[in-house]
Computed example of a mutant assay.
Amino acid sequence: MNIRAVKEGKTDVLVPVHEEGVSFPPSAAPVFYNPAMELNRDISVAATSVFAEKLSERRNIAIEDIRYLDALSASGIRGLRIANEVGVHTTLNDWSENAFELIVRNIRHLGLQERVDATHKNANVLMHEKRFNIVDIDPFGTPAPFLAAAARCAVHLLAVTATDTAPLCGAHLHSGIRKYSAVPFNNEYHAEMGVRILLGKVARELAITDKFMVPLLSHATRHYVRTYLEIGNGAKKADEMLEHIGFILHCTPCGFRQILPGMAVNIASGCPRCSSEALIAGPLWLGKLHDIGFCGDVLKELERTEPGTKEQAKRIIGLCMDELEMPTFYEQHLICKRLGVSASGINDLINTLKSRGFAASRTHFSGTSFKTDAGIDEIENIIMMLR
């Protein structure tokens, strides 16, 4: 296996490379390493650092005594950066023999023998055997097979990446149903649908063992979904968490949507606005996706550490921080197309909504999407006025 040194953040890591002149995707390498996920890792390091500091203060735990697990490490670059740049005690695990050998080599290369353990196990077995303050699940593909074990293993923070956005967002409907025990939508807000389907699945796994979650930061970026969830214990809190599980009714012809909280709900078959057949998605997470204070601290950490993707990361976190908490967003261009008019500037639309007494914000999901508590009738009237 050929390797080369790369630097991400403040960490020099050895990663696999293919032979010169040979081209193949990252997934075909002897050990998986994707340079395009540097943005994901930059945010991960900042978010983990912020959480570790708060955990250290609240629980009176030294940073180096906080236990972090990178359960599906591959090249190990994420966990190595966490160990080197955050300072927590890190366990890097991978089932691949090649990955394990590279991880061990990188630990020696960085001089992290006292701070990092390497294990060569099935991730689910390891997570059932031990508990960690922070558990990070970042598989190649769906995290679904690992969520039950991760929900039991994580004591204070669970971070999850899902790159199977087609099942999560409804493009591969039956695959999404099988993996997440929920029906997703493939519509204009499919990116948010993926986040909420994932969070709904994690919440149900946590509730089985009387645990609950508080989302700190969740974003859909490029081809993946990423979430950071603070974890706690208690049957009452778990019951309260499940109150944020429910369904979304959506009418494709007219754009009407309705939020329906509850694990079992009474749903009309027709759209209340135009009587067309309405679609139902869920069960999924209807609660908040972000904690404003946490996002603000992550922004400060990104500013302080200046990672390679600093500006991109700051933009994502800033938009997440300012997003309204309500489920679903509207896509301005889709509404304009349905009305047969040209779109105004997105900021003009949002400012006009606010001037009419509605809450409104941009979203991190796309540059032409917005959230508002205005109904579709009010939105269409304002768009027609601005045309």
Rank of each mutant, 00 (worst) to 15 (best):
R4D: 12
V13F: 03
V15N: 11
V31A: 04
M37D: 09
R41P: 08
V45A: 01
T48Y: 14
E53H: 07
K54I: 09
L55F: 11
S56R: 08
G76K: 07
R78I: 02
L80D: 03
G87A: 10
H89C: 12
T91P: 03
L92P: 04
N93E: 02
S96G: 09
N98P: 10
F100I: 03
N106V: 03
I107F: 01
R115A: 08
T119D: 07
H120K: 09
L126M: 04
L126Y: 03
N133C: 02
V135H: 04
I137D: 00
P139N: 06
P139E: 08
G141K: 06
G141N: 10
P145R: 06
A149L: 03
A151L: 11
H156P: 01
H156G: 01
L158A: 04
A166K: 10
A166L: 11
P167Y: 12
C169R: 12
G170W: 08
H174L: 15
H174Y: 14
G176M: 13
S181I: 10
N186S: 14
Y189P: 09
M193W: 08
G194Q: 12
V195Y: 02
V202Q: 04
A203Q: 12
R204Q: 07
F212T: 07
L216M: 05
L217G: 03
S218R: 04
H223C: 02
R226F: 05
L229E: 05
N233Y: 12
M241D: 08
L242M: 14
E243Q: 14
E243V: 02
G246I: 02
F247K: 08
I259E: 12
M263I: 07
N266I: 05
P272S: 00
I280K: 11
P283V: 08
W285C: 09
G287N: 15
K288H: 15
L289S: 04
D297H: 05
T305D: 02
K310C: 12
E311G: 00
K314Q: 14
K314D: 00
M326S: 15
T328Q: 13
T328A: 13
F329P: 01
D348V: 06
I350G: 03
I350E: 09
L353D: 09
S355C: 06
S355R: 13
R356D: 13
F358N: 08
A359K: 15
A360G: 11
A360Y: 06
K371L: 12
G375F: 07
R387D: 13
